[in-house]
């Protein structure tokens, strides 16, 4: 019951999803749509589980006074504020215009966006330092990497004039031809890997998702 039912469920549902693709009638299309909607709905409960886990972990850190226990207070305060604003708007919250609460939108705009964008922009510095170490053209292959990167980066330079036009064409060729070829090779490998993994899961060879008893 604890392990066999989930395994049977996985096999049956995977088979249903495969068969519905080969039998494209109204019933199979509806089934596909239903199942996909259900996954999203179950996902919301998974999200609630994640929030609960975050609260518990943060609370435990504060309770045990572990080093840096003050920081989880910020996590809990941010979580509480966003939940209060996100849910407090009540009945009129869900509208055609979407999530409309003033503070909810502004907390997103002035907390989430700045932090996220700055975190990603931090990578510009680290990438520059990594580039200095990696791009010293010590071998032919490193030189190829360096040249490709330089061409792609320089094409955005507005001061290059006619040379910039050639760079733009070269970049376009680099991205559409050799880049496409290598990416295609990677994607074919990934595709085969994904299919093999899906088959392993479907046939019950891969059972990590069941966890331990």
């Amino acid at each position: 019951m604890k392990r066999q039912v989930p395994l049977m469920l996985v096999f049956t549902l995977a088979l249903v999803m495969i068969v519905q693709y080969f039998v494209p009638n109204d019933f199979s299309l509806d089934t596909n749509e239903f199942l996909l909607k259900w996954i999203i709905i179950i996902g919301i409960f998974a999200m609630a589980l994640g929030i609960w886990s975050l609260i518990r972990v943060s609370y435990e850190k504060i309770r045990r006074r572990v080093p840096g226990w003050q920081y989880p207070i910020a996590t809990l305060l941010g979580l509480a504020a966003m939940i209060v604003f996100g849910f407090d708007y009540g009945r009129h919250f869900y509208t055609q215009e979407g999530l409309e609460n003033y503070m909810f939108i502004h907390l997103f705009q002035y907390i989430i966006i700045p932090i996220q964008a700055t975190m990603f922009s931090l990578l510009a510095f680290y990438i520059a330092s990594a580039a200095y170490r990696a791009f010293r053209a010590r071998s032919v292959l490193a030189t190829v990497l360096l040249l490709a990167a330089l061409i792609v980066m320089l094409r955005f330079n507005p001061y290059l004039g006619t040379f910039g036009v050639y760079l733009e064409k070269t970049t376009s060729w680099l991205l559409n031809v050799p880049n496409l070829a290598a990416k295609r090779a990677i994607i074919i490998g990934l595709g085969l890997g994904a299919v093999a993994t899906a088959l392993k899961v479907m046939l019950g060879i891969e059972r990590a998702y069941l966890g331990r008893d």
């Binding site: 975050l54 920081y71 910020a74 941010g78 966003m82 907390i111 989430i112 996220q116």
Partner: peptide
């Protein structure tokens, strides 16, 4: 830490 809390609640609210 603030980002973790705020963004978790944001996606929870949007999802809900």
């Amino acid at each position: 830490h603030l980002f973790v809390g705020v963004s978790a609640a944001y996606w929870m609210s949007v999802g809900f």
